[in-house]
Simulated scan of single mutants.
Amino acid sequence: MTGLSGISGAVVKRKGGKRFNVHWRCRLFMADKKIHEAVITSVFDKGFGLLFLQAVPVDTVMNVEFGLSFNDKPVKIRFKGAVGYCLIRSDNTGADLDLLTTNISSTDKHTINNVLQALGEANGFK
């Protein structure tokens, strides 16, 4: 998927390989010291796709926290990421962001890798 850069008008390609659609509510912590709500809409090997209420400049650093149930256990994931892609939705419902993971604990990374493997092996994705 591609989008246009608001500054140069150049085509910007999204990074990451195979994406899996999800719907996980999350909290974003940015430089303004406020907690922002967002939804993780996809997960891929290099990071996460988010739906956020506003556009955010590329390279903006965010801390993200979200919970999910994996193997019937609640898990809280925390990571730091940088915006690698931002596209404002034409229906005025926010912006699609790709947040590329820059710092994540080895335990959380292992959990995400297990989630990716489980999603890849699910019947709906074959």
Rank of each mutant, 00 (worst) to 15 (best):
K34T: 13
P74L: 12
G47P: 10
D108C: 10
L4Y: 11
K18I: 14
D108S: 15
N71K: 12
T102K: 06
L97A: 04
R25G: 08
K76I: 01
G81V: 02
V22S: 01
T102E: 15
K76W: 09
A118K: 13
V43C: 09
K46L: 13
N92V: 06
L28V: 11
L68G: 00
D96P: 02
L68R: 07
I112P: 01
L50G: 01
T93R: 15
L51G: 00
A31F: 10
I104Q: 05
S5W: 08
T101M: 13
G120D: 07
S5G: 14
K18M: 06
D72V: 05
L87Y: 04
N71Y: 07
G47K: 09
A82V: 07
I104A: 03
A122P: 02
V12I: 15
G17S: 12
G124S: 15
I40M: 09
E121P: 08
F20V: 11
L51A: 01
N123R: 10
L99Q: 00
S106G: 00
P74F: 07
L87Q: 10
T2H: 08
V115E: 03
W24T: 05
I7T: 05
L53H: 15
F125C: 10
S90D: 07
A10T: 08
D98W: 01
D91H: 10
L68H: 09
G120N: 15
L4H: 01
S69W: 00
A55H: 08
K46Q: 04
V115L: 08
H36E: 08
A55D: 08
S90R: 01
G17D: 14
G47V: 03
K73V: 06
K126E: 09
C26I: 10
F52A: 08
N103E: 14
F79S: 02
L4K: 08
Q54G: 11
D72F: 11
K76D: 03
V58D: 00
F20R: 05
S5M: 04
N21E: 09
T102H: 09
M30R: 07
K80E: 13
V64E: 00
I7S: 03
V22M: 10
K34R: 15
D59Y: 12
L100W: 02
D108L: 07
V56K: 02
L99M: 14
E121R: 11
S42L: 01
D72I: 00
P74H: 13
N71A: 15
L97V: 06
M30C: 14
Q54F: 09
K73H: 09
V11A: 14
R14A: 07
V11T: 11
F70N: 12
I35H: 11
A122R: 07
S69F: 13
S106I: 12
W24D: 04
H23S: 12
G67P: 04
D59A: 10
V58T: 13
D91P: 03
L68A: 13
N123P: 03
E37P: 08
N71S: 06
D45G: 04
I35M: 15
L87D: 02
N114F: 01
N113P: 04
V75E: 10
V12E: 06
L4N: 09
C86G: 05
A95P: 13
D91R: 09
T102L: 14
T102S: 09
L100T: 06
